[in-house]
Design a protein around this nucleic acid. Structure first.
Lengths: 217, 217, 217, 217
DNA sequence: CATGAATGAGTATTCATTCAT
DNA sequence: TATGAATGAATACTCATTCAT
């Protein structure tokens, strides 16, 4: 018995399909970010990707899936960027600092991803969970164990983990949005430095701080 | 005795007009927040306000103006809520704390205003400045003089004013969005307390803090 | 028993009402002619007549009646203009000539009436008879007796009355429309002269005319 | 042997496209004529042509272009009808006579084209030149050389060309409109005969004609 | 698989008419 | 009677999706 000849004649070329899919997603991200979800014609994405409109429907079920896939891809890239920035660091405090820097840098360099996040919230508010928060949850374990380590080793003062978690997350989230929405262009390193200075050391003077210590937290 | 200068026809009732305008705006805010700008049918707003569709166009030039007026009204309310919460406080640190609390409380109690902010950004991204940041700028003077007072009196350690300004603004902005988008429902007082604890005193342990002090700020 | 006092207190002032009605009609004619029936807002007519929109409905049942009344008024004026032009003429041939001249002159001086005629046909094509043809019919008796006189007295050659009637009517109708639609501005006297020259004497040369006479008319 | 250059996807069929375009135009002419430009719903045209509303917009930019193209097509047909009627005639006087007959016959047989002419004037009065007069100008050269020939050969008496031109044009134009607007249904041949009888030989009796000859034309 | 012509549901805005004052 | 605020019916055009080739 002979191996099926089809195999020889035509390789499935799954790879080409994947490449095309990613190309479409990249174009979609750009076009959606430039025009907004509603105002963007599917045709405009097809044009940008240099394929026919019908072809898009061979790769995605519709405009919605196309959009959501683009957002998801962006968030995946973001996490990869952060992971890669902290990959070879040893000191947990360095990881903490460089992670924040990498997060802000990614959105600074990919403003279209910020647009996609906002668009997603505006147009698909009814979905259980937004892509951003889903990815945040998926990455939460690493982040929590980092915080736990910093707490356990006594480098952070004794605070509930969720307090640090919430405040830090809200702060970088708000920073990213404000950067984008208000057109602020402070250098990323300065910005990360400002954040860490305040979050690490607080804004109270030593005197005021001492007074407050007596009180119960 | 002089005959009252009765004008011909139906007398215009300025007050009634204003009341009706505000009623329409309130309904518009609710309906837009519930359905999103694009998906909201103008008819739905008319129904909610119990007026005919054509009447809306006697008060607003169109859907867009109606929406933007609703956003603006919301931000005006927000500032009024914060101002009123701090009106009779003496200690600047109290003002600082209660201001943050009032801000968070307003958006907690008026989630539709958060929706409007996000909708505005998504649909009218090309406008010079979003309503939120315009109002933030209008209120900046008060806020800055508060910070200056706290710095001058030595209750805050010696930091650049904009560092505190930026970080605090970004933090409450991110907190508000996260509350709304992720469905987090921490009690507002706890939340404000968590924020202030970290922002006031920092997260580093005393030991780590001492180490860092030697370094450059 | 006393006569009702109301009579004394307020004269019915039918005259004022009529004057106002005519003023409105005049304005309506101008505004309709300028903008076309469909594109003309009732409000624009009210503005032009300096009355409130609602007032129009006290004088006319609606936009349609207002328009048709304006057309009718115009045709009434036209007939009066022609009648007045021929009033004191004795020679029937003079009446014939001056009647045509007066007709063309009226529409030259009142181009808005031409517009109203065309608008009426375009928008109310389903009405039994257009205002123009109704007025033409109403004036037909005079016109026919004029033609009959000219035929009977041997000043016109022996032709069926309707042949002259139709051709003359069609000719001046077509002339009026062409003047207006193509922007032709030949002096009215020249134009009437050209028409009469051809209609009175024909365009064939004497030779060709003679040949044709032998044939059957 | 070379593989036929099969193009990807559905091949464009230029011929089918043209056929469909003309079908749509024909339906549009009928529906517009029946209902008037303003009152005609674009959907009604789509229904009549048995295509979807959106398809109309693949062939025409909008309702206006659709209408104007229908008018233009009609006038093109009219000129073709007249040209074809006189194509093989030798005697210029025959051409003159048969041309007028063909003109009247066309509009008798295509009353919807008369409607379109009137609709165009009513709704698009601001356009530089109406379709009718544009086509008339395009055909003027032939017509003028015909008149010149008849004048030069002495078959018409010595008249200015424009006098004949204007009067004949106005006459047939007025005849066409009157036929349509007043519902007159004289047989076309009779009608053309009546026109030619009067225009050729005039209406004056020989006696009156002689008197007038003494006068200056 | 790829194409793009065809489809038809969906919507902001205008404006003739009404009617409370 | 005069007014003009309120009403709501009416309508061209777009664009996501399908499917014949």
């Amino acid at each position: 018995m002979v191996a099926p000849e089809r195999r020889r004649g035509r390789p499935p070329d799954e790879e080409a399909r994947t490449r095309r899919r990613e190309k479409i997603l990249g174009c979609a991200a750009r076009v959606f970010a430039a025009g907004g979800y509603q105002k963007t014609d599917v045709q405009a994405i097809a044009d940008a990707a240099n394929v026919a409109k019908g072809t898009l429907y061979l790769y995605f079920t519709g405009k919605e899936e196309l959009f959501l896939a683009a957002v998801d891809q962006g968030m995946t890239w973001m996490r990869a960027a952060v992971d890669s920035a902290i990959a070879d660091l040893r000191d947990p405090l360095d990881v903490f600092e460089r992670g924040i820097l990498a997060y802000l840098r990614f959105f600074e360099e990919h403003p279209e991803q910020v647009e996609l996040l906002i668009q997603e919230r505006a147009e698909f508010r009814d979905r259980k969970q937004s892509t951003y928060f889903r990815h945040r949850e998926e990455g939460a374990a690493h982040w929590h164990s980092l915080l736990r380590e910093l707490l356990a080793s006594g480098r952070f003062r004794d605070l509930p983990l969720t307090r640090i978690d919430d405040v830090m997350n809200d702060l970088v989230y708000g920073t990213m949005f404000t950067n984008h929405f208000s057109g602020r262009h402070k250098p990323i390193e300065t910005q990360a430095g400002d954040i860490l200075d305040i979050v690490f050391r607080g804004i109270l003077s030593d005197e005021e701080r001492a007074k407050m210590k007596d009180t119960k937290s």
